[in-house]
């Protein structure tokens, strides 16, 4: 059985990637299981999706504990424990990371004795929010690394999964996926099917008898005010709303009232966006009647910010 895990952020097309790969396997005559896994659904939050494929009906279910292939669409997730990118990785696991950094860097950083590859199309995909194209590229690369999926099956899978989105989007995805598929030619078939667990020689679970804790400890209650302030949900943002004060009429209330996260405050008759907590939903951009709020790709905004800080000597 093949066991594949895709890691990314909500909005980057990981579910789509798993579906493209699942459908491609299915078209090649495999039994398939594919599924996304996320918590409360939010753009930018870590999610993963997985695919199992086998010639026989599949009885395994749920999260993949020991993947044969892990694809990371967003390298900023690797160091986040909650994202679980490294969970259950063994020497057998191949990692494919969408990253501008070299494979050797990742190998040393993760001290991973198995194979690590980076996705060469990463450079083309400069914009994280350039949806599901990253996902399609990941699926294309995975298909080739697995080695049992033809280019035709991959193309058919993309057509099947994305046809509702129109010819333009299908073509862009096809382009990226096929490029990634071809880029992995020299590694075709590098992914090997993992083995089955043995009932003879297995690691026994470290079961315990759960002790009684009184309700002062065991009730699921933590009372604290303003806890949401502590969670920097601004990290989820892929687009940044930026106010153009030349056009802002200082109306006092529209953008700040519509902001579903209360991340816009009005200070001295001017709206101020709290970028630590703005998730980049762009509701303010849509609502501002004077079109004074612009949506800027987060990466570009960060780069501009760094350039500015460099210029004023804040950083060197």
């Amino acid at each position: 059985m093949y066991r594949i895990r895709f890691h990314g952020r909500g909005g980057q097309g990981m579910k789509t990637a798993s579906r493209i790969l699942g459908t491609a396997f299915f078209l090649e005559g495999y039994e398939v299981q594919d599924a996304p896994r996320y918590g409360a659904e939010r753009r930018g939050a870590p999610i993963f999706a997985y695919v199992r494929a086998d010639r026989a009906p599949i009885n395994e279910r749920g999260i993949i504990r020991h993947p044969d292939l892990v694809i990371v669409a967003d390298d900023s997730l690797v160091p986040i424990p909650a994202a679980g990118v490294l969970a259950g990785i063994t020497d057998h696991s191949l990692m494919l990371i969408n990253s501008a950094e070299k494979e050797q860097v990742w190998k040393q950083r993760l001290n991973h004795s198995g194979s690590i590859l980076t996705l060469p199309v990463a450079a083309d995909v400069t914009e994280r929010a350039e949806l599901p194209y990253v996902g399609a590229a990941c699926a294309g690369a995975a298909a080739r690394l697995i080695g049992v999926i033809s280019e035709a099956a991959l193309e058919q899978a993309i057509n099947d999964e994305l046809s509702d989105l129109g010819a333009d989007i299908v073509n862009k995805n096809l382009h990226n996926a096929v490029a990634a598929y071809r880029a992995m030619a020299s590694h075709a078939g590098l992914v090997k099917e993992g083995s089955l667990v043995s009932a003879v020689d297995y690691e026994a679970p470290d079961w315990i008898d759960l002790p009684f804790d009184d309700a002062r400890i065991s009730a699921p209650t933590i009372h604290a005010a303003a806890t949401s302030v502590l969670v920097k949900t601004g990290l989820w943002r892929t687009q940044r709303p930026v106010i153009d004060f030349d056009h802002c009429k200082g109306c006092w209330w529209i953008c700040s009232s519509y902001c579903p996260d209360g991340a816009i405050n009005v200070v001295d008759a001017k709206p101020v966006i709290d970028y630590d907590h703005c998730k980049g939903c762009m509701v303010c951009v849509a609502q501002c009647p004077s079109h004074a709020i612009e949506a800027i790709p987060e990466k570009q905004a960060k780069a501009d910010e760094d350039a500015m800080r460099l210029e004023i000597g804040e950083i060197t």
Partner: peptide
């Protein structure tokens, strides 16, 4: 939920 609701199978 999840194990069937969001899981695709043939």
């Amino acid at each position: 939920g999840f194990y069937l609701s969001f899981t695709r199978e043939p």
